[in-house]
Design a protein around this nucleic acid. Sequence first.
DNA 1: GTGGTCTAGACCACA
DNA 2: GTGGTCTAGACCACG
Lengths: 123, 123, 123, 123
Amino acid sequence: MTKDFQASKPIYLQIVDHLSSQIVRGELKAGQKLPSVREMAVESGVNPNTIQRTYSEMERMGIVETKRGQGTFVTENEQVLQALKIQLQTDIIGGFVKSMKELGFSQEEMVQGLQQFFRREQE
Amino acid sequence: MTKDFQASKPIYLQIVDHLSSQIVRGELKAGQKLPSVREMAVESGVNPNTIQRTYSEMERMGIVETKRGQGTFVTENEQVLQALKIQLQTDIIGGFVKSMKELGFSQEEMVQGLQQFFRREQE
Amino acid sequence: MTKDFQASKPIYLQIVDHLSSQIVRGELKAGQKLPSVREMAVESGVNPNTIQRTYSEMERMGIVETKRGQGTFVTENEQVLQALKIQLQTDIIGGFVKSMKELGFSQEEMVQGLQQFFRREQE
Amino acid sequence: MTKDFQASKPIYLQIVDHLSSQIVRGELKAGQKLPSVREMAVESGVNPNTIQRTYSEMERMGIVETKRGQGTFVTENEQVLQALKIQLQTDIIGGFVKSMKELGFSQEEMVQGLQQFFRREQE
DNA sequence: GTGGTCTAGACCACA
DNA sequence: GTGGTCTAGACCACG
């Protein structure tokens, strides 16, 4: 039984996640211009090609539109943005449930655990 | 704003997590002997030193005990095991809450989202 | 097996095609004056030498006649224009047939495919 | 009116077309292994990264499946291959119709021209 | 060996 | 200036 350690996602996908997150929570709004490929590369401390790939992937997903010579912009298609939010949410919840299941928790215990967590946090 | 990508944990800590998980969900029981450092190293495809470090860390955490010449055993201190379970659970929940917060979800929405997830899963 | 990608035609021939197309479909009529080399160069965003070469080539093909001090005119020889039309048509059809053959289509399938295309377009 | 000369497709897409063509006409069969990225790069006289991109694009389109450490294979999903054939056919016909329209040909003339072309070819 | 990712640096078309 | 493509060369995980 050999496990797969080192399972860190590719950088360009991490940045996709990061930007998606910003879009979903309204920090980057529909129609807004993203930083240029080169700016973003400096900002993130990675190679411009990596950002290029990030933007390409996001365009493929439809959450961003690029205009040659002008820049890359958050789509104004609210339906896509809504779907993105649901997608991200489902991914996170799925990962959470999987981890908790591995610790032997039932669905009820997960909900209770979550509620207890909030109660403790408020104290 | 330079982000820290590539944040994959050291291997020895990943193995700590993996073993902890097995212990918590009863796959490895209190008092049970863990595989020897060498066995475990082969099993995991990792250098024996890395496993040594894993076991040391787990001993430091009090969840295993090593007996010279006999091997490494899961502690029989149920209180520690209980605490471990809570610790892991809290970590997972904490990560979950952090991610969901980043997407702009409120506490109520998290609970509701989780419950919806279960409902959809059962269909 | 080394392929030849990047096979884009020289610009002056592209312009020949473009002008030929305009002549064939009557946008430029027999006997009509073409724009001067300089005008055409500006219009096309190209070096005047390139246009010069275009006109020379078209004269060599007989589809255009230059009168010193007056300009360049579409030939009034209808036979040549007719031949040009057939030539362009044959080139296009030849390219089409070649591409379709590469996909494994028979002659009958090409005709049928074309007719189906029209039918779908009209819906 | 500035025209866009030099409109040659990116190399990686030209190779996509080339391979698609081979697949559609059965030269590369369902389930068959494609040349490795490096082999293909040498064969085509381009950089391995360019082939990588070609294969990625083809995987995205679903016409190819890659198995890490083993290679890239033509999909065995016949439905996808059928759709691919139709897609390529439609693209070629569409380009043909567009060109012929620019020369002022009607739909009937296109069909007749095509049939005449075949007749002449057989002589 | 395979494909996948990343960097460094270049050139292009578009506006 | 923008994004898009390409090369050269490197390192990684997987089998």
